[in-house]
Nucleic acid binder design. Structure first.
Lengths: 110, 110
DNA sequence: TCTTACCGTAAGTAAAGCCTTACGAAAGAG
DNA sequence: CTCTTTCGTAAGGCTTTACTTACGGTAAGA
């Protein structure tokens, strides 16, 4: 299970919205929380999940904490998605080929 | 929130393992369940989640149901990851540039 | 120093998720 | 028709998750 934590972090709609926000640029917590219908501590908890997954980086600046997207981990995820897609294509056309020949691909009995 | 359901589907370790299994080729439910420590109905429920997310396709064959990866939706996800990564890179270097100039990117005071 | 702004964490609660067993429907063999 | 295989779904229990309010700690300004 290669990217369990990262995908779990991205699976929440609020965290996805946070990611979308940070696509425009780094932001501190208070400003980030302004656009959401939930409390600021809830945003902090989501930011912790995203940070623990390596998707965000933090830069303290005075009392503020600036959060930004971490391109490195994001690139790893993208590469994994790429390989997944390649295998999906391969398995798909192979299955289509097999089905055209005999009808059932995995017709083995142990 | 563009790919909420797809990412939620991929976030579970069991479902990730199912995906890994199907990278080798399509399989029916009973054979798929053989390699897991959980019951067959649990596998069926996971397969439903993955199918509802559009990541799998089903092909009935007698009493069996052959599950396979759906390359289309997988490609969409990959493309979204690509754009996400590009924006992350852009925001990152822009932030680095701003920090080099003044120190704080979002320095507005309400 | 005193006050204000910013933020993380703890405690508690309501909701969602994952697993199990039990059951019923559909397809094929005899 | 009867029996078996394959599979999806319903019901219930248990764990995890996401939210709230309350609180403490740190940095900057007067």
């Amino acid at each position: 299970m290669p990217y369990e934590k990262e995908l779990a972090a991205l699976s929440d709609p609020t965290r996805q919205a946070i990611i979308q926000r940070l696509r425009l640029g780094p932001q501190n917590v208070a400003r980030l929380a302004e656009g959401f219908p939930i409390s600021r501590p809830a945003i902090s908890q989501h930011l912790k999940v995203l940070s623990d997954a390596g998707l965000l980086s933090v830069t303290p600046n005075g009392t503020r904490r600036i959060y930004a997207l971490s391109p490195d981990r994001m690139r790893d995820l993208r590469d994994w998605m790429n390989s997944l897609w390649d295998d999906a294509r391969g398995a798909f056309s192979r299955a289509a080929h097999d089905l055209a020949k005999e009808g059932t691909p995995n017709d083995r009995s142990d």
